[in-house]
Every structure is written in C-alpha cells, then in structure tokens.
Nucleic acid binder design. Structure first.
Lengths: 247, 247
DNA sequence: AGTAATGCGCCGTTTTATGTCCTATTTGTT
DNA sequence: AACAAATAGGACATAAAACGGCGCATTACT
C-alpha cells in the first residue's frame, strides 16, 4: 500500500513529543487513537513515542480496557521555567527570604526547587552562585525597627546595583547621608545586607579607599562602570558578618 | 569508504542536543571540531545540530576566523526548572511573601518569573491556580506580635494539610485549643491566612456545621479524606477577608 | 462473550540523519 | 599580502531510524 508521509518542518519527532506532552497535560485522558489522528501518524508510532517519553522519565500511565486511555500525572511538569542568570539568583534569594520567616506551611517543596535550580547550573555558574550567596546577608527577623525609609529606591538604581553586584563591577553613585550631605562615590559592592525591608550595601569606597556602608534607598543615582573589582577587599567586613545569617 | 555508525541508545540526536547545550553553557567557546570529537560525530553533523538549536530559539552565536568558536549567551537558560503543581503553587506563594516585605532590590525579576510560571500552565491549571490564589491571604506585615508558637507544626501535618487544601479534600484533624482542650474535627480548609510566622486555616467544621479558624501549629494530626468539598461554604468568611491582602 | 482500549513483536517501506567531500567567507597572525 | 583557523553551507551516497500495517496478547468494563 502507498504510504504517504508529509514532512512537516524539521525534527518531526521532537516536536511531536513536545506536543504530545502538552496534550497529555490536559485533564482528560486521550486515547492513542486520538493522538494518532491529531498528529497524522499511526497508532504504532504514537506508541513508540510514548515509550520514548517514558524512557525520558515522564510519568505517563495508560489504562487498558474500555474507557481507558493515556494519561500523564497531572501534577507533573506544570511549571516549566527557563530562567536567566539574574532571575535564578533572584529566585534563590527570594526563596531564602521566604524561608527565613519560618512559615513552613508552603515551604515543604522549597528545598526541592532549590536543588533543581542549582542542579541546572553549569559547574562554573554553580561556583559563581555559591560565591554570590556568601555575599548576601540576611539579618535576624526580629531586628530593631528601621527608621522610616525615604520611600522606595528607584528601579533604575536598583537594577544597576544588582547588575554591578553580580558582575563584580565598580559603580559610581550619588549618595545622600542621613544629615542630608550629598556626595559622589565610586564603590565596589562587596556584600548586600537585608534588614527586613531595607537593603544595605557593604562596599569598598574607592575614592576614600576605606570600607563604607550605604543604604540603598539613599542612593540617588548609580552608573555601572567597566572595571571589575576583586573580592580581596571584602575581608575587612568579615568580622562584622558573624551577626548575620549568610544566605 | 566504510562508515561506521554506532547507535548509542535511542534518540541519539536529542541527547546530543542536550549535551551540546550543557557544554555550550560553559564559559569558554568550543570549536565545532571539539564538539565533533567529544561526541564522536562529524563536524558537519555538529553544524546541523547547531542549526537546529538556533531554530529552536537558543541564542547560539559563532565567531568566524582564527580564535573563533561557538558560544551560547552565558546568561541564557541557566535555570531550567520543571516544577510539579504543588511546587509551582509553593513558588508563587513564596514569591508573594518575598514581595510582601517590600525589599525590592532583588525583586526586579520576580514579575518575569511569575509571568513565565503562569504562562506555562495549561488553561485548566491556570484557572485552578487563580482560584487557589484567592484562597490564600497574607496579613499586613506590621501585625500584632503573635504569641510564641508551640514550636513548628509537624511536617507530616503540614504536608497533608497542603495536599488537602490544594485538592479541596476534607481533612480529619486533632486540634488542641489554647486552653489545652483537645478535639477531633473534620474540616474543609477554605482559606489559608499567613500572619507573618504563623499560618491559620479558615475552615468549615463539618461536625459542628459552622465556620472555625485553626492555628496550624496547634494541629496535632491530619488525615486527608476522600470526599471533595465545594467552595460554597467559603462565603461565610468573605466579610472577614477585607482586612487582608489576597495573594 | 463482546468490546474497547493498551502493549508489543515482526516485516517491508520511506525518510532522514550522517559522513565525506567540497567551496565560500570571515578574521586574526605573521 | 599571504596564511591559518575557524564557521557556513551545498551535493551526494548510504546506513540507520522512523514509520505503517498487521496480528496477537492483555485488561477491564458491560
């Protein structure tokens, strides 16, 4: 018999596997027949596809007999994320913050998420993330109430600071001291410290050549520089770190 | 010329694509030659693989000429997560909690993560998640300091409660009132309320046929039942919800 | 017993992924 | 300017996969 086969695009099987997975995530079980029809291939092929998907670890179950069909555990593989580096770090921190306030009802699964996330990194990235985690501190929950902040820090500033911290780049900032005095500085953001609502930057001030601490909401402007800084100067801060939890 | 080809397992190409992706995530650029050697295929094949990966949207760039090579944007695709339903919900809540305490330094990316996460749901799941989000309340940050809890709730209890809440299943619990009186109840967990460190369950007590509120850390034992409950009874709680932020 | 579903083995056919050549192009080095 | 090292990609033959179709075993519901 003549067997017509139209090649759709490229890698037919891979695409079909994805589509089948998506289809199976729907609530009701499909029959192999349905799948075969919707994809324009034979039952046999679908069967082989399912074999492959099972081999790849997807929890695909089938029920034989009338009323049966192919199902995938509905609670599997919802939530496919593809995060950028910055997003990943954010997420790790966010998880840590959420865990910090010990409200363990919904945090049962957090460990699993963190493990998956870390496992998905390459070796180099993993090391990098480890390094960054050491540079983020979280104060005890019941800390002294901070004086009312000057409003939210500006998103632009936040983003720049964020970038520079991750990339170990120097930053130029305009800072307003508590007494209102303004100053321009070039700093190397070594550590970040979260005291419940307020972030602090423990940095080496390259103009004054001394360690300084800045409140993020008092930074008016921030410009990322091109020069990378080393973590050597960070040692100055180490004695102070014992009071805080490291991420 | 004889062309030896050893079939590795199944779907050789898919596996190779994954491996190449992982390899490319490493910092330094590989040459096509390297890739060909490490995978035991020809340069041409690797080239074709790269074509495919590009077609799939991976940001793979190549630099021609001496000293060139194939690179992938290092900040792409770090962080591949495949979350279960429960994990997804946890994550959403965790993000919300982290956002609640307005420490916006590292939360710039959170919106993006949440959007990705929600986008990855199927329609049905998305609706379900929307429903669940409405059933989780978060109290204002500066709430009255709660009396010291009785220690952490038991992990077993937490997990059961968690499941039952998500699946809208009735739960049997052993509860200890503040005055020490113990009781057995069958409840329908309609809402969850987080007052900073303590979770409360707003539930319909099916034995007393009346709404009740329970502190999670006072629940001694929990068993998930088979009977699903409807959200009809939840209306009783609605007037009380205005005081809290809905997730 | 009949029916509707999966599971799986076998075989012949079609498609495609691969290897081997080849050329063009870009780019840094000598 | 010449050379070397890299990617990009075309052409062609071929072995290996993917596929379709068939049949039979199995399972569960009516």
């Amino acid at each position: 018999m003549t067997q017509k086969r139209s090649r759709a695009d490229a890698q037919t099987r891979m695409m079909r596997l994805d589509q089948i997975a998506a289809q199976l995530k729907g609530e009701d079980p499909c029959t192999v027949d349905d799948l075969a029809r919707t994809h324009g291939v034979s039952r046999r092929t679908i069967a082989r596809d399912l074999e492959i998907m099972r081999a790849q670890g997807m929890p695909i179950e089938a029920e034989r007999g009338r009323g049966g069909g192919v199902r995938m555990d509905v609670n599997w593989g919802v939530g496919r994320l593809n995060l950028s580096y910055a997003e990943s770090v954010d997420l790790l921190i966010s998880l840590a913050v959420a865990e910090q306030m010990n409200s363990p009802l919904f945090l049962a699964q957090m460990g699993s998420i963190r493990r998956q996330l870390i496992a998905s990194f390459s070796k180099e990235k993993r090391r990098a993330v480890q390094g960054i985690k050491k540079r983020i501190l979280i104060a005890e929950h019941a800390s002294l109430p901070v004086q009312t902040s000057m409003g939210q820090p500006k998103p632009r500033v936040v983003q720049t600071l964020h970038q520079a911290f991750l990339n170990q780049k120097l930053v130029e900032i305009d800072y307003v001291r508590e007494d209102g005095a303004k100053s321009k500085r070039t700093i190397a953001p070594q550590y970040l410290l979260l005291c419940s609502p307020v972030w602090y930057v423990l940095a080496w001030d390259h103009l004054r050549d001394a360690p300084r601490t800045f409140r993020c909401d008092r930074i008016q402007r921030a410009t990322e520089g091109f020069e990378k800084f080393s973590l050597q100067d960070a040692k100055v801060f180490e004695p102070a770190l014992d009071h805080y939890n490291v991420l």
